[in-house]
Design a protein around this nucleic acid. Structure first.
Lengths: 336, 336
DNA sequence: TTGTACGCGTTATCAT
DNA sequence: ATGATAACGCGTACAA
């Protein structure tokens, strides 16, 4: 490996002068600069990034940590952050959190790499382990709020979006509306349950806990969860997130239930019927988070808004128009 | 930040002894070890990973570089590599290649981080830029072969899979079979075109270049590409990859064409009709690649198989059963 | 303008 | 078994 010393020897200057030339320091004569540049090219000098990081204490790298990179929602966040970082000469490393309990070790091993910043969509329920790092490294939460630590966050309007989706079902005449989620331990899921309940209350519909079921994380779990919920006799369901929704497609596809879901997903518009969703714009989430990291690095002393809530919008498709079960309810009512 | 020196001062030993204790070096008396461990805990010592990497020249990190992390195929490769690495105390950093021409800079900035190894699903057409690194860092290619550099690779059977998919259409009675791909500059796409052509030849069907169209990278491109192909009057199409397939769903869904595609994708089995695909097992690809990195690190002098081709299998679903256009052809033939 | 000396935190070498 | 010293490659402070 060619070092600055090697280049210096060839150019007949000191290592420091090579450093100056390489970093475009103006205090070098044109003639010296030329000689050094020739040596640089001749030896094919490549800086040792680790040494630079070690010396300066910061790698020109932003970390992005997400619960599951297979989920297109999180992949989009990462991709947007990467695009923005690249525009500012930074690279991005993505890492999978894998599971709530592994989050601390995974994130800390990332943070030890002297990152310039971290964008995290947390999986864990408590993020107190970040306290020791947050003074030295800007950390921005996305999708979910920080718990046990103060940090910037960009989240979507979970309560509002769930309210919107549920109200949409109400407007279609449904009164028996189920809630299917992944895990109520997650604040995001809880907030969406809250929005769902608020919408029902606002419509004067009584809450029924047998219409709330969680555990839809894969196709098997989704089937079990739905079987549970189905006993309560819903005519419509609201899925609390895209991943649950994707798992639920096989079982909801031909159920005759009206459906809305929180979070768009690839091919949702191509299913039969196509699914009505709440759209979250993960690209914007990722871009905003990365921008905040860059801002904090550039102006550490400025004050920033701690919490930013992004609006969501309803994308209406077909899954609320077709509602066999509701017809059933109506016919039954007519007969009475 | 607490350093080994600080710990050494508290324990009343030298920094080197602290290092020995921390790294489980046996040449330390039990009594000394105990004292040092107490100091370690008291000061809450956390090693500076950058300093260690700097000193040893290797970070306990495997890099995974893929063209597009949004593509579930590549995300699966990354995830599998991560799982395997974690079992061996290594972490993984994922990076997006973004585009063929940006690949060299992106990869090299990754490699400068003194990685222990790199798993790459390349986007670029030539990988000669890796020559300078490959002696110091194990590099394993997945999905696509190395060009311009010698390296290990794990790829799927592109020619065989395409042959399989095309033959399947032939068996269903099709003779006008289109090929829709993303980019013929990619060796993968070319190999699949080759398999497609071989299958037609084997069936005694004449090749027709107007039945080959590329440019399906997003929904707009897919629509344009298909419009082009459609003029040639196909009754069936073979999509050369999952990403193209996903983009083509809107336009092929109700086309009445029989369909096969190379690469399964989420919800392919939930479309109407469900899509028959060639399944590639990206998880295995990622796991094998990461294992090879670990093997090469553990036994650098062993010899390894350069090129491993994984078999693929046909997953038959409904998209070949429904073939309105073929009926049209037959009726036309009957009338004659 | 250019160079010297030093230090970042860790580990390897070689004494003791 | 333990420690002193040097070294990894670069950038900072300061001197020349």
């Amino acid at each position: 490996m060619v070092t600055m010393r090697d280049v210096a020897a060839v150019a007949g200057v000191s290592a420091k002068t090579v450093s100056r030339v390489f970093n475009d320091n103006p205090h070098v004569t044109a003639e010296t600069k030329q000689r050094v540049e020739a040596a640089l090219r001749e030896l094919n000098y490549v800086p040792n990034a680790i040494a630079t990081t070690f010396r300066t204490g910061r790698a020109p790298v932003i970390g992005v940590a997400v619960p599951d990179i297979i989920d297109p929602f999180f992949a989009s966040i990462a991709k947007a952050a990467e695009t923005l970082a690249a525009e500012h000469g930074m690279s991005v490393v993505i890492t999978n959190l894998r599971s709530p309990d592994r989050e601390p070790e995974v994130v800390q091993s990332l943070l030890r790499q002297a990152l310039s910043g971290l964008v995290i969509a947390p999986a864990a329920l408590d993020h107190g382990y970040l306290k020791a790092w947050i003074d030295r490294t800007p950390v921005v939460f996305v999708d979910r709020q920080p718990v046990g630590v103060a940090a910037d966050s960009f989240i979507e309007d979970d309560v509002g979006g769930a309210h919107l989706a549920t109200s949409h079902l109400v407007e279609h005449g449904h009164t028996r509306i189920g809630f299917i989620g992944d895990d109520l331990a997650l604040p995001t899921t809880r907030a969406r349950l809250e929005g769902y309940r608020a919408a029902l209350s606002d419509a004067g519909i009584a809450l029924d806990d047998s219409l709330v079921a969680v555990g839809a994380v894969d196709r098997a779990g989704a089937a079990a969860t739905f079987a549970d919920l189905d006993r309560a006799g819903p005519s419509a369901v609201f899925c609390s997130n895209a991943r649950a929704a994707i798992s639920l497609v096989p079982i909801l596809q031909d159920s005759g239930l009206a459906i809305t879901t929180f979070g768009d997903f690839p091919l949702a518009d191509m299913l039969t019927p196509s699914w009505t969703v709440i759209d979250q714009d993960p690209l914007q989430l990722g871009a905003l988070a990365a921008q905040r990291i860059l801002d904090r690095l550039a102006k550490p002393n400025r004050r920033y808004r701690r919490r930013t809530v992004l609006p969501v919008r309803l994308v209406e498709r077909d899954s609320c128009r077709i509602a066999t079960r509701l017809e059933g309810f109506r016919l039954a009512a007519d007969r009475r």
